[in-house]
Nucleic acid binder design. Structure first.
Lengths: 208, 208
DNA sequence: TTAGATACTATACAAAAGTATACTTGTCAA
DNA sequence: TTGACAAGTATACTTTTGTATAGTATCTAA
């Protein structure tokens, strides 16, 4: 994007601040009044900012401008899934407990959801209370961490397809691997998605 | 908040969608046109939504309405700090590489920043590439993980104040603890803040 | 049963707001 | 030195837009 002049930078900053405080963009006259100039001068600035790609404008509409770098474009509302029960619609509203606005750069693709870790089977990589980001997909590569639905219960495990069938392994050695014959797995095991990220808060956890 | 009627819920949903797409709120007439009613009817709905606390309005202003549950209120722009050099202003613009919009519920307090983990000293809890959330503070409780500036270099360590002085310990046993006499520590060691959270992306990391 | 909210129609008015016309001044690169 | 851009003044015109007036009809809880 073309660089801005100092004056244009100030105008853009004013618009950002105005939107943040008011929830709607300023009028040409409000920009003009803030800088103590005539409406025409302010309109010139807006035209320059539009020409340089820093904001969109709808000609003729009052307050018809919006920032090119809007929060709505930087942020994605990711659903937090609660208890997962068997039966299809994973992202159906009955499973969604809440949503969290996360930076778009963390969310690749559409079918992503958050899940609160409850068990200890992936310790120490994933601990109870962690929030894992999961990309919904029916298969994962060998050794990747997946959300797996076994007997109507969702768990986090590494998935290995082997000659004998399917093996689900936790990182925690205290948990024995689960083994399924190929036909058995097809019936009892459903991979819901791949773990693509974790968020952990240390607050409320004691120090070592 | 008072419950909405079905019609009011639809109007609110339209306003949310409109703001998300356009970047500015709709006019009374745009709401009216969308529902195929007269401007007066739409204005009645807006008045009801305001009365019930779902949106703010500035009387007389075009598009002078904003949602009570705005993204701006749910999200905080947290600075990502790059190379930290000695000398005071930690959150000065020369240290801030970028910012990331994070949910307000993750950010307690004001003086919070993000730091990319580079070393291995806190492995396996914190790995290179992780993004840690740090609350800027000059002291931490015994055993808490801190961002510590030693010899003009920022590292992550657990901090223990002991009889002999200050001990900085990584979780990784391959790293020997750093010990400082009390007066030595005051000169060479500066605690920049407490690690309060981590975000880790698994993409780009190989499976086990 | 009556007051109060909901949900509208239809018309009209005045303020708010974008924009056009006509100029001026200064800077800076081709 | 000329033309493009930046930054402005001053006045005016025309839409856009919120709101007021005056009604109608339905439903619901005191």
């Amino acid at each position: 994007m073309k660089p801005l002049t100092e004056r244009q930078r100030l105008v853009l900053a004013f618009i950002e601040e105005f939107c943040r405080r008011q929830g709607y963009p300023p009028t040409v006259r409000e920009v003009a009044a803030h800088f103590g100039v005539q409406p025409r001068a302010a309109a010139d600035h807006l035209a320059a900012l539009k020409r340089k790609g820093y904001l969109h404008r709808e000609p003729g509409l009052s307050r018809g401008l919006s920032l090119a770098s809007r929060l709505e474009e930087q942020v994605v509302e990711v659903p937090i899934v609660g208890r997962i029960a068997a039966g299809r619609p994973l992202l159906a509203s009955e499973h969604v407990e809440d949503t969290l606005p996360l930076p778009r750069s963390w969310v690749h693709g559409e079918e992503v959801f958050l899940l609160k870790v409850t068990g200890d089977s992936m310790s120490p990589l994933l601990l109870p209370g962690d929030l894992v980001m999961v990309k919904a997909q029916p298969r994962v590569a060998r050794g990747e961490i997946a959300v797996v639905l076994v007997n109507d219960e969702a768990t986090l495990k590494r998935v290995y397809e082997e000659a004998g069938g399917l093996v689900l392994k936790g990182d925690n050695p205290e948990f024995a691997p689960l083994r399924f014959a190929r036909d058995e797995a097809a019936e009892l095991v459903q991979i819901l998605g791949k773990v693509v990220g974790v968020y952990r808060s240390f607050e409320g956890r004691g120090p070592r």
